[in-house]
């Protein structure tokens, strides 16, 4: 038998937040209102961390961290709550001029993570040509094709991450993970672009229960890329972790209303952020209610 004792990667959400440092570049997986590692995001919001650079296909993860004053720089293609297209905390922060930003196209963000994953300094792309994205100093470099076409491309710099935070459905203690949702988004690339990847899992199970011969296509990345794993049931709430549970539109409404004033945010924070996870779940309606949320329409 292999000695697996040194491969126990289990941590708590607080321990994961404790491993992050001021000024880090942190990538957050998922997409808008889907499979965001929200329990980890709330732990960061509660922490003393500051001056973070956040890379995200943004949803309430960006909103909460912006409202909590954790973001120095945001690298994004959008921040949206899907059913509420405009993310109100993101808007407040942007309109106050509080965020340094690098605005990218969705595919460019993918491409920058891929460059980092391949340990390339950049990848060439046509994306951005003809747009104001290229006025940003990070996107000011061009490369010319050495071949007969001679075409000029944007040199898209690698988006190297100090840490990636992801939410998955199942994991074993060693970090063999399953992402069961119908779209894995770009979580694999976030993990490959990062020096350390921390995941929350709905459930930590014995390796055999992952049934990898049947579930291989849900196995996001090899375990060598997973640094730590915390069991956190409903860890993506209020975003969805389908098929386990769906987006909580009712909570999303409460959340959007918390951007109306500093007092509204303080009240939301007291009820839903500055609380242990059991209290969070109770405040969000309880296990039964969250497990039976209806599937939203897109």
């Amino acid at each position: 038998m292999t000695d697996m004792t040194t491969l126990d990667k289990r941590l708590t959400v607080e321990e994961i937040a404790g491993r992050l440092k001021n000024g880090m570049t942190i990538g957050i997986g998922g997409w808008a209102t889907r499979r965001k590692p929200m329990a980890l995001v709330r732990a960061i919001a509660r922490s003393n961390l500051k001056d973070l650079t956040i890379v995200s296909y943004g949803g309430p993860d960006v909103g909460i961290l912006a409202a909590a004053g954790k973001i120095r720089k945001l690298i994004f293609a959008f921040v949206s709550l899907d059913h509420y297209p405009l993310e109100p905390h993101f808007r407040n922060a942007r309109q106050a001029g509080a965020l340094q930003i690098l605005e990218l196209d969705e595919g460019m963000l993918h491409w920058g993570l891929r460059a980092a994953a391949m340990r390339m300094p950049f990848l060439p792309t046509r994306i951005g040509i003809g747009t104001d994205l290229l006025k940003q100093p990070e996107l000011s470099n061009r490369v010319t094709s050495p071949f007969a076409d001679g075409e000029e491309f944007v040199a898209l710099p690698a988006l190297k991450l100090d840490a990636a935070l992801l939410h998955v459905h199942r994991s074993d203690a060693r970090g063999n993970v399953l992402t069961l949702s119908p779209d894995p988004f770009f979580d694999e690339l976030f993990a490959r672009a990062a020096d350390a990847t921390y995941v929350t899992a709905e459930k930590i199970v014995p390796t055999a229960e992952l049934n990898l011969p049947a579930n291989a296509r849900y196995n996001l990345v090899e375990r060598a890329l997973i640094t730590g794993v915390a069991e956190q049931k409903f860890g993506a709430h209020p975003t969805s972790a389908a098929p386990d549970y769906q987006l909580d539109l009712k909570h999303l409404k409460i959340y959007t209303e918390s951007a109306a004033s500093p007092e509204a945010w303080a009240a939301y924070r007291a009820s839903f952020v500055d609380v242990p996870s059991a209290a969070y779940l109770a405040a969000a309606g309880g296990e039964e209610a969250v497990s039976t949320l209806p599937k939203p329409f897109y």
Partner: peptide, 19 residues
């Protein structure tokens, strides 16, 4: 753009789609 009067979505996939 640094301090918008109205911040909206972000460029989303529009730059890549357009070309």
């Amino acid at each position: 753009h640094a301090k918008p009067k109205a911040a909206m979505l972000g460029a989303r996939g529009f730059p890549g789609n357009s070309i």
